[in-house]
Simulated scan of single mutants.
Amino acid sequence: MAKYIALLRGINVSGQKLIKMDALRTSLSKLKYENIQTYIQSGNIIFESSETDQRKLEDQIHQNIQDSFGFDVPVIVRSQAEWRTTFNNNPFVNDRNEDITKLYVTLLSDEPKSENFEVLLNFRDWPEEMILKGQNLYIFYTMGAGTSKLDLNTIERKLKVQGTSRNWKTTTKLMQMLDD
């Protein structure tokens, strides 16, 4: 059995798409996943599965949530090794040692085209810094994420791929949980 992390986009935000984590774990257990854990209410799921096709896992979880809760929720699945790579390759941590309270990673469904990343870089009129590494967009919100105009909807629209973002504290905790 391999370990995976599933990241849900847009649940339990502003009273929308409410899903209790215990109900989610129960629902996902019907998919024959094992050692299912969740972290906080924003849709972070660690589980084990014998399935090796991550797109199939994404589809299974997506359909399960739609059937069980009635919500269309985008799902991104990463293997334990992929999450470790995401964690270990943050240039704002490794190269610059920036304040981790201002660091986020947006996990993308696919690697965006370089011209779309250029569109995002050229569109911005904000002070945030972004570095794209494959399917990971590392963001340094220099003034804090709460005041930024750079939101996930803008990122998705400009890159033309789906994504979900996590702050660095959550990213670190999920790495610890995957390693336990």
Rank of each mutant, 00 (worst) to 15 (best):
A2I: 04
K3M: 12
Y4C: 11
L7M: 05
L8R: 05
I11P: 06
N12D: 05
V13M: 01
S14D: 14
G15I: 00
K17T: 06
K17F: 04
K17D: 11
K17C: 08
I19Y: 05
M21H: 15
A23T: 07
R25T: 13
R25W: 03
T26I: 10
T26H: 14
S27Y: 06
L28E: 08
S29M: 13
S29C: 07
L31Y: 00
L31C: 01
K32I: 04
Y33N: 03
Y33W: 02
Q37E: 15
I40E: 04
Q41M: 10
S42I: 00
N44F: 06
N44H: 05
I45K: 12
I46F: 15
I46V: 15
I46Q: 12
F47S: 04
E48W: 07
E48T: 15
S50M: 05
E51T: 08
E51H: 07
T52H: 10
T52L: 10
T52P: 01
T52E: 09
Q54E: 10
Q54A: 06
R55P: 00
L57Q: 08
L57W: 11
L57Y: 08
D59P: 02
Q60S: 13
H62K: 12
S68E: 13
S68N: 07
F71D: 06
P74T: 04
I76V: 01
R78S: 01
A81E: 09
W83K: 10
W83V: 09
R84N: 07
T85Y: 04
T85A: 13
F87R: 08
N88G: 01
N89I: 08
F92T: 11
V93K: 15
V93I: 15
N94I: 14
N97Y: 11
N97M: 14
D99M: 13
D99Y: 12
D99Q: 14
T101E: 09
K102F: 13
L103F: 11
L107H: 03
L107M: 05
S109C: 05
E111C: 11
P112I: 04
P112F: 05
K113Y: 10
S114C: 03
E115T: 10
E118C: 04
V119Y: 00
L121D: 09
F123K: 09
R124W: 02
R124T: 03
W126G: 07
W126I: 11
P127C: 03
E128S: 05
M130V: 06
I131H: 12
L132T: 03
K133T: 13
G134Q: 12
N136T: 05
N136I: 02
L137E: 00
Y138V: 03
I139K: 01
F140T: 00
G144E: 07
G144I: 05
G146Q: 08
G146R: 10
T147W: 02
T147A: 08
K149Q: 01
N153Q: 10
R157V: 00
K158G: 06
L159F: 00
V161R: 03
Q162N: 14
T164H: 08
S165L: 09
N167I: 07
T171V: 12
T171G: 10
T172G: 12
T172F: 12
L174K: 05
Q176R: 14
Q176V: 14
Q176C: 10
M177G: 12
L178K: 02
D180M: 00
